[in-house]
Design a protein around this nucleic acid. Structure first.
Lengths: 241, 241
DNA sequence: GCAAAAGTGTTTTGCGTACACCCATGC
DNA sequence: GCATGGGTGTACGCAAAACACTTTTGC
């Protein structure tokens, strides 16, 4: 029936020149945790048409740049951060999602420890926004944000990634309050503690909190050793909360 | 510090012309189920350099075409199928993943009922390959396939999607054998049946199998009514097997 | 009557969940 | 001594998992 014509790569390349008219961008949902709230790093839109709107941090992907590298570049340029947790979530490709032309965007989320990086943000257009206080973002960024929040909620139930949002040492209260902020629910303290000790995700530092106006809690560290040799996609199946 | 310059959409458009040099494609992992095996629909590469390799079904996305529409188009063009189950999985964006230039590809998987569509494939370059007998695919398609298989395995544990792979009416044995083929494990028959009846995913047709060389099993249908108004992303939290 | 798969219940075990009181510290 | 959060244990219910025998049909 249909005879399939064989082509060379070179032929294919020239035949499809019309298709190379699409730009691809990455948008990063950068999560942080501060004062018991889950926050997202946003920037004021640099487009006049959207000057009252906040947007996610993103940029066009360069023709000679890996998709993931582009995300890391955005993170590094905007926050100075390297080696942060970063994960791809979804690609948004509606024809008219962006006013500047056909721009398909791949969304990533990353988890950073706000405290380590406050200074770098001091004098620019970047601000941390509590996720519960975010109004309309530019373009389809509200949708992107919501998709990433859902994904994060799912992910923390089975994977030890929240530690990227916390300082090296943290109390169980901080950890629980982080889970509560992400999930938007209250959790039972005794069950929460029991679960974490049972899972062996924590290492007791034999230190306690300083300068708290109440009985200080013990400090813990993430038990990195337990997860060596595991990439992001592995290690399923262990319900966390 | 950094003064952010305001731009109009028009300015942005012309400034970034160099970025619109990337093509985006969709690649569809089309799953089917036949003879107790999970299969994937593959086509012989139409590139001379890869003529001995099989590839996933994909195509470049047109500049005026939604990403998801492109996937549906590929499915329709290749299999004649409309209204199939389709879900985005991941976007592969390494610089040198494709020999024809900078092509970023978004992977989708879809679930089809092989029996309904055998004829359309008879005389072309398409063939169903059992997932356990697939050798090296062209480009990074092995990686894409494996990502989709993992995703499918996760998904069927909580969502009633496998019915897309079965005929309208099916026996519990067929259903269980499908789960076993996807997960690559054996399951306990009694627990499996109990679970499905408890979940109320099935409707008893009061019919039995015909022409089987043993005691015929009862036939069931997917209980569509129970999931009306649910999109693909909703309805989490109900462990299936 | 034999092969092959259908159909069926019970028991055990682990996990999630609910729940209340005393303790240590700062002020 | 009081306010604040830290720290701890038990009991219940449900769901997962393990497990074997009888029934029905085709040949």
């Amino acid at each position: 029936m249909t005879t399939v014509s064989q082509k060379t790569v070179k032929q294919l390349k020239s035949e499809n020149r019309d298709y190379f008219q699409i730009a691809i961008s990455v948008d990063c949902v950068i999560f942080g945790f501060e004062n018991g709230e889950l926050k997202v790093l946003l920037i004021r839109s640099d487009l006049e048409e959207y000057k009252d709107h906040w947007t996610l941090l993103g940029d066009l992907v360069k023709p000679d740049e890996d998709l993931e590298s582009a995300s890391y570049r955005v993170l590094k340029e905007r926050t100075g951060l390297m080696d942060v947790f970063l994960e791809q979530v979804y690609t948004f490709g509606d024809v008219s999602r962006h006013p500047a032309g056909r721009v398909i965007s791949t969304a990533y989320y990353s988890l950073v420890n706000i405290k380590d990086h406050q200074l770098r943000l001091a004098h620019n257009q970047l601000h941390w926004h509590p996720i519960n206080e975010i109004n309309a973002l530019a373009f389809d960024h509200t949708k992107i944000l919501n998709t990433c929040i859902s994904q994060l909620q799912d992910k923390i139930m089975e994977h030890p990634i929240v530690f990227n949002l916390l300082p090296e040492k943290f109390s169980l209260r901080e950890l629980q309050s982080l889970y509560e902020a992400i999930l938007g629910t209250k959790l039972d303290r005794r069950n929460f503690r029991k679960k974490f000790f049972l899972m062996d995700w924590l290492v007791d530092m034999n230190e306690v909190e300083q300068d708290v106006p109440h009985r200080p809690g013990k400090l813990y560290q993430f038990n990195k050793g337990r997860f060596e040799g595991e990439n992001t996609e592995a290690s399923k199946h262990a319900q966390v909360v």
